[in-house]
Amino acid sequence: KAVLCADHGEKLQLFCQEDGKVICWLCERSQEHRGHHTFLVE
């Protein structure tokens, strides 16, 4: 069962290295995470 983003309802499948947390693809494109290094997690 996928864990969903509290903000967007999308699957949490990216790890943001700068923030040390898992985010969704919409979070990654938001101003908050712009320019951060993210990695796909399974």
Results as ranks from 00 to 15, higher is better:
residue 38 T to E: 05
residue 16 C to N: 05
residue 42 E to A: 00
residue 10 E to H: 03
residue 6 A to P: 10
residue 31 Q to M: 10
residue 37 H to F: 14
residue 13 Q to E: 14
residue 10 E to L: 06
residue 7 D to C: 13
residue 30 S to M: 12
residue 11 K to V: 10
residue 40 L to V: 10
residue 29 R to Q: 07
residue 14 L to Q: 11
residue 7 D to W: 07
residue 33 H to W: 01
residue 27 C to I: 00
residue 26 L to C: 08
residue 23 I to L: 04
residue 4 L to C: 07
residue 21 K to W: 03
residue 3 V to E: 10
residue 16 C to K: 05
residue 36 H to G: 03
residue 19 D to C: 15
residue 41 V to C: 07
residue 8 H to T: 01
residue 4 L to A: 07
residue 17 Q to M: 02
residue 15 F to T: 05
residue 5 C to P: 01
residue 18 E to T: 11
residue 5 C to A: 00
residue 36 H to S: 04
residue 15 F to W: 09
residue 27 C to E: 00
residue 18 E to W: 02
residue 25 W to L: 11
residue 27 C to G: 01
residue 14 L to M: 13
residue 28 E to I: 03
residue 9 G to N: 15
residue 28 E to C: 02
residue 18 E to I: 04
residue 3 V to F: 15
residue 23 I to T: 02
residue 17 Q to L: 04
residue 41 V to N: 12
residue 22 V to G: 11
residue 30 S to H: 06
residue 28 E to V: 07
residue 8 H to A: 01
residue 2 A to H: 07
residue 10 E to C: 07
residue 11 K to L: 06
residue 8 H to M: 01
residue 19 D to R: 02
residue 41 V to I: 06
residue 26 L to R: 13
residue 13 Q to M: 05
residue 26 L to K: 14
residue 30 S to G: 08
residue 16 C to V: 03
residue 40 L to D: 13
residue 34 R to C: 08
residue 31 Q to T: 10
residue 31 Q to N: 11
residue 23 I to E: 02
residue 12 L to D: 11
residue 3 V to W: 04
residue 24 C to K: 02
residue 31 Q to C: 09
residue 8 H to P: 00
residue 35 G to M: 03
residue 9 G to W: 05
residue 16 C to M: 02
residue 26 L to G: 10
residue 20 G to A: 11
residue 40 L to S: 14
residue 28 E to S: 08
residue 36 H to Q: 05
residue 25 W to V: 11
residue 6 A to W: 03
residue 24 C to Y: 01
residue 36 H to W: 01
residue 4 L to F: 14
residue 9 G to K: 12
residue 19 D to L: 00
residue 37 H to I: 11
residue 17 Q to A: 09
residue 2 A to W: 10
residue 6 A to D: 09
residue 7 D to E: 12
residue 13 Q to R: 08
residue 21 K to S: 09
residue 12 L to K: 12
residue 15 F to L: 06
residue 15 F to A: 06
residue 14 L to W: 15
residue 30 S to I: 15
residue 20 G to K: 05
residue 26 L to I: 07
residue 36 H to P: 01
residue 10 E to F: 11
residue 9 G to M: 07
residue 41 V to M: 08
residue 27 C to T: 00
residue 36 H to A: 03
residue 41 V to T: 13
residue 41 V to R: 14
residue 13 Q to K: 14
residue 37 H to S: 08
residue 11 K to P: 15
residue 5 C to T: 00
residue 5 C to N: 00
residue 35 G to I: 04
residue 8 H to Q: 05
residue 2 A to N: 13
residue 6 A to G: 07
residue 1 K to F: 04
residue 13 Q to T: 14
residue 30 S to P: 01
residue 14 L to H: 14
residue 27 C to H: 02
residue 11 K to T: 09
residue 33 H to K: 15
residue 36 H to E: 04
residue 16 C to L: 01
residue 33 H to A: 03
residue 26 L to A: 11
residue 30 S to F: 02
residue 18 E to A: 03
residue 37 H to W: 02
residue 24 C to F: 08
residue 25 W to T: 13
residue 33 H to P: 01
residue 3 V to H: 04
residue 41 V to W: 10
residue 26 L to F: 02
residue 34 R to Q: 10
residue 12 L to E: 09
residue 33 H to L: 05
residue 2 A to P: 10
residue 19 D to A: 01
residue 31 Q to I: 10
residue 10 E to W: 03
residue 16 C to A: 05
residue 2 A to M: 15
residue 29 R to T: 08
residue 25 W to K: 15
residue 18 E to K: 04
residue 33 H to M: 02
residue 34 R to M: 10
residue 35 G to S: 09
residue 28 E to M: 04
residue 3 V to D: 05
residue 21 K to M: 05
residue 40 L to R: 11
residue 31 Q to K: 09
